[in-house]
Nucleic acid binder design. Structure first.
Lengths: 118, 118
DNA sequence: CCGAAGGTTCGAAGTTTCTCGTACCTGCCC
DNA sequence: GGGCAGGTACGAGAAACTTCGAACCTTCGG
């Protein structure tokens, strides 16, 4: 839709499919990125600032998946690209989803390596 | 874990991974089934009672995925098999997830074919 | 007993996903 | 200008997913 300078094309939120979103969030790398964005202040962030242990081209792939799933907005600015969560739009379309996934993931992380039972 | 008569093996809820769950729910057929179960009274249901337009062997596959993702419990009883949501367990492990996905899906269904905007 | 109904197992085919390396492009900086 | 950092595009390989049909098994109903 939007064709602002450097803005990469994204689907209208109304066209975004829940299955596509769940698939996008199913991947650990992508979920980590989204989690990182959610815990931020909503400001734009450099794509290069995410510590993903994967090749450049693979990263490009994941950003595309997240973009096409309606989760992020991406902008090309000279030598780098920047992303921003489509927070409000997304919440309006899929109320609570981001919060729930975030909360669960946060618990998972804080609970990692503290298993008394075994 | 459980090896009751006819009970098919399921993972302990603590071992269930969020990514696996999201993948399981990403498939339309499986999501439809879960949705159907959630809207029910929690009672056991015959696997054959779900109107899935797919081959028998494919259905077996989907039930296995849902089972291994920790979403359902499955029981073999004579000539048929029966399923039940692992509602309470699942909610304790992934609070709100089932509700959110259910709510979103319900809206999607009730909104289908009523798009004034364009 | 015999058939139909419900399921599983076992390939197999087709598609998708994740991953990478290589080549290439574009700004920024010295 | 030359190099580097950040990215994209493309092709390829490996793995996973979805689907099916065929063969087989069990159970229930006549």
């Amino acid at each position: 839709m939007s064709s602002m300078p450097g803005e990469l094309p994204i689907p209208a939120m109304a066209d975004v499919d829940l299955g596509t979103v769940l698939s996008a969030l199913a991947d650990p790398h992508r979920r980590a990125v989204v989690l990182d964005l959610v815990s931020g202040d909503g400001a734009e962030r450099a794509c290069s600032s995410f510590p993903l242990p994967i090749a450049k081209s693979t990263r490009t792939h994941h950003w595309r998946v997240l973009r096409e799933a309606g989760l992020v907005r991406q902008r090309d600015a000279g030598n780098g690209t920047f992303v921003r969560l489509r927070r409000d739009e997304f919440d309006a379309r899929f109320p609570g989803l981001l919060d729930v996934v975030t909360d669960i993931s946060t618990v998972e992380i804080s609970t990692a390596g503290s298993a008394p039972a075994r």
